[in-house]
Nucleic acid binder design. Structure first.
Lengths: 201, 201
DNA sequence: ACCTTTGTTAACCAATTGGTTAAACTATTT
DNA sequence: AAATAGTTTAACCAATTGGTTAACAAAGGT
């Protein structure tokens, strides 16, 4: 809680922290108010209700993620280049904000429609280009015949899953935070080369 | 709700359904009672409180999963055989109970200690054997030098992640349940051959 | 100085929810 | 059939929680 910044900014910072940690249902308005160092009524003065506050944070968090991903997916690089970019950018980004994937998955799980409505503004995300590119590089003989959907699923699975399962992984292996993040940094390179090796002709 | 079975069995069935769907915090005792066709007080008569009821279900659910996994991991087959078994068994199992992975991850995330305490009975899970086997097959020249932890992470990531992200995947792609499960059945084979291809010498 | 708008608080409210109590009903034992 | 033990219910309770109200302070405009 930074006392000098504006009340609204403090609310947003506290709400983000607490929503990320506990999700919409787990978060308490009182806790957010406490963390921001204000009265609960003032919270409702700035953000009419919990839903509205949550939506603000949810959109903010997702909007830090998706655009970068879609930018890479829709760029003009050759496929191998894209995969390399994606893995390092993605894992690097998640290391900075390791709670975000679980937060997003959990909340999309609770209310799938909110995602498409609030974040995608009713539109579906742009996968056509990358899928077309995969099919084209197959035709050109650069990569082996591959189901584009499975390929995309593979890349994303390998990058994100360990962060979703982090509490379990660390609990079960006794790994420290430092160990875990070290493993993940090393992983960025490994995932990338594994994927490329598995599809190159 | 099957009227003929015993009250306790009906409670367990209802509790399982509702806890799997909404997690410990999201589930309402009243909803479980309603689903089981009984009074809420009777729920507390059979299971003293929510925690106790939840623990019963949690242990039950996890115990249907882990033993099969560890049995495969600690079997005597060669590595490639094990990987094949693991992928088909694992994905096949999850297709039967697609909510289980998210349930487990979410609850371990909420209280990591509960897992090691209630399910692992205080012990850490047995990964030594499979790790030793990986290192040995590297030495024997059967597979390429590989970080065993990363390899295990890869296998598990590829198998489980799509089920965790299912609501997002289906919402975003507009895939039907049937389409999704068909994709997952096909995936079992793909994941397996991709993994083996990526490590074989 | 006075008034209006904006920011902030303490106290309160209604709904939800996990859990309890005491009574009633049912089956079993004697 | 009477007593006992086990099962089930309606009504209730206390704590939590999202949200509201009304009063009060601060700032700005005139």
């Amino acid at each position: 809680m930074q006392r000098d910044s504006s009340t609204e900014d403090r609310i947003l910072a506290s709400a983000r922290k607490i929503f990320l940690d506990r999700g919409l249902e787990g978060a308490r308005m009182q806790d957010i108010a406490d963390d921001a160092g204000i009265n609960k009524a003032l919270l409702h003065y700035y953000f009419r209700n919990k839903e509205k506050l949550f939506d603000t944070i949810f959109v903010q968090v997702v909007d830090e993620f998706l655009p970068r991903i879609f930018a890479i997916l829709n760029g003009d690089q050759p496929l191998f280049e894209k995969i390399k970019l994606f893995c390092s950018e993605y894992i690097g980004q998640i290391i900075q904000t390791p709670y975000v994937p679980m937060f997003i998955i959990q909340e999309v799980n609770r209310d799938p429609q909110r995602f498409i409505k609030k974040v995608m503004h009713g539109k579906h995300p742009p996968f056509q280009k990358i899928i077309a590119q995969i099919n084209q590089e197959i035709k050109q003989g650069i990569i082996k015949p591959t189901n584009p959907v499975q390929l995309l699923l593979n890349i994303i699975s390998l990058c994100i899953f360990p962060f979703l399962a982090r509490p379990m992984i660390q609990t079960v292996t006794g790994m420290s935070n430092k160990d875990f993040f070290h493993l993940m940094e090393q992983r960025s390179e490994e995932v990338c080369s594994m994927i490329i090796y598995s599809i190159k002709a």
